[in-house]
Design a protein around this nucleic acid. Structure first.
Length: 432
RNA sequence: CGGGGUAUGGCGCAGUGGUAGCGCGCACCGUUCGGGACGGUGAGGUCGCCCGUUCAAAUCGGGCUACCCCGACCA
């Protein structure tokens, strides 16, 4: 919560740029060419460890957490419960489903001794045996469990920054039902919930029919249109049809059945995917329950994933301009980028922060609960501060300089050119 | 996994046989202060790794590794 007793230092709500770990860099790294990686590295959100594996710096982690919390909110609203499963997984369970050999992106980890583990790329092999301990009766169903955790996949080729990594953050939810009918009801609900979740994240995700891979006969993907995406869909811009071009038999340009005009083919990023697993895994592990008449039946399952770090990459891919990232408000690391320009209090930063006009505004914003990144650097030109603010992409920029008088700020939104001078209180009202 | 490219200071780059340089950044001093300011001083590199050729290798030859891109693959 808010540390109001010590308002001028960093808290969960605020940060002094001079203290922020992870600075912007002027020239983007040459060994990255994807838009998301260049922007996110340049703006100080992430740093590459090895190919397809990225560290998240404080700004990046804030975005990741914003995304995660929106997803949590939506998942909890469907009656799901969050838990946290292991990354080191039991080899025997993977052999039981046959995926120890058939899942080719599976990382296999050997210990110095005779142990061997699967490094979790997905969690059916962990959760289904676990659920077996607790769900034995129709009274225990339906059951919806999810987690947010790093996944590992031994991709032949990682690429495009956060869009295809070997280690990435993912939300995976698994549902357990008495009947296929109950699964279908929840599955249909999740389609709506996914649509809404992505919309809250600032993405228009198109529900798309796709293959089921090693999981099921078919699945539904949530695809965001982006020229740099690696997927391709054929869809109706009016929203009643979309299929992954891997499986569709329909051709681009064909008239939509509902008369909306020609179907289009576009490149996309897959940010979510849901599968009706049915009894595939319950059979493998003997996950059964007793129904009302005492008959033993297989539990019917579904699973629902959202690539959280990939979604962050997708947002950066979609929401940017020549100057940098333009974060949607809901996932921005901070709501306000506060800038002080010389003139009002020359050398102000050498005085204790609480004494300058800008710091007073900063403290006021923080006390009100507004998340602020305050560029308190001295001896840095206006142009550089503006350039950094644009690069980082926080939705609202507030400037205090000799252009504004006491109690006022200059307000500018990241996605607009217009600036206006308003009172601090007005600014707070707008941010509320 | 096939093909292509790259590897020199924190970042971006130059340097085709004689012992490494520029811009940015960083540190200090001064001047600046609304769109990436200026002057001065200074720190920082076993030139990805190994082997070889040579009196001498960032530079030539061989091998390896890492990263990026295209393709194949991809809950």
């Amino acid at each position: 919560m808010l540390y109001s007793f010590y308002p001028s230092v960093n808290s969960g709500y605020s940060m002094l740029y001079s203290k922020l770990f992870g600075k912007t860099i002027k020239e983007s790294p040459k060994d990255e060419s994807s838009v998301n990686a260049r922007l996110l590295i340049q703006a100080g959100f992430i740093r590459k460890e090895v190919a397809g594996v990225y560290n998240f710096l404080p700004l990046g982690l804030r975005v990741l957490n914003k995304i995660s919390n929106i997803i949590r909110d939506e998942m909890d609203n469907t009656g799901a419960q969050e838990l946290l499963l292991v990354s080191f997984q039991n080899k025997a369970n993977w052999e039981k489903t046959g995926r120890w050999d058939s899942f080719d992106a599976l990382f296999k980890v050997k210990s110095r001794y005779d142990f061997e583990y699967a490094l979790g790329p997905t969690h059916e092999e962990v959760l289904v045996p676990l659920v077996k301990n607790f769900a034995n009766s129709y009274r225990d169903l339906p059951l919806k469990l999810y987690q947010i955790q790093n996944k590992f996949r031994d991709e032949a080729r990682s690429k495009a920054g956060l869009l295809r990594g070997r280690e990435f953050l993912m939300k995976d939810l698994y549902s357990f039902h008495q009947s296929e009918k109950d699964l279908v009801d929840y599955y249909e609900l999740m389609k709506k919930v996914y649509k809404k979740t992505f919309s809250r994240l600032g993405l228009n995700a198109i529900e798309t029919l796709a293959s089921g891979g090693t999981f099921s006969k078919f699945s539904h993907e949530f695809q965001v249109i982006c020229g740099n995406g690696e997927d391709e869909i054929i869809y109706c811009p009016s929203g009643d049809f979309s299929q992954n071009s891997e499986i569709t038999k329909v051709k681009e340009g064909k008239e939509c059945d509902l008369g909306h005009g020609p179907l289009k083919k576009v490149k996309t990023i897959e940010v979510g995917n849901i599968f009706p697993l049915k009894d595939k895994f319950s059979k493998a592990f003997g996950l059964t329950f007793k129904d009302k008449s005492g008959k033993e039946k297989y539990v019917v399952m579904g699973c629902y994933g959202i690539g959280i770090s990939r979604t962050m990459g997708a947002i950066a891919e979609v929401h940017n301009d020549k100057k940098g990232i333009v974060w949607p408000k809901s996932v921005a690391p901070y709501q306000v980028h506060l800038i002080h320009l010389g003139g009002v209090h020359p050398r102000f930063a050498k005085a204790s922060p609480g004494e300058s006009a800008t710091s007073e505004v900063y403290d006021k914003l923080v006390k009100t609960g507004v998340e602020v990144l305050y560029d308190d650097r001295e001896d840095v030109s206006a142009g550089e501060k503006f350039a950094d603010a644009d690069l980082i992409g926080i939705p609202v920029r507030l400037v205090i300089s000799d252009k504004v008088s006491g109690g006022q700020v200059e307000w500018k939104k990241r996605d607009e050119d217009k600036t206006e001078i308003i009172s601090v209180d007005q600014a707070i009202k707008r941010l509320g």
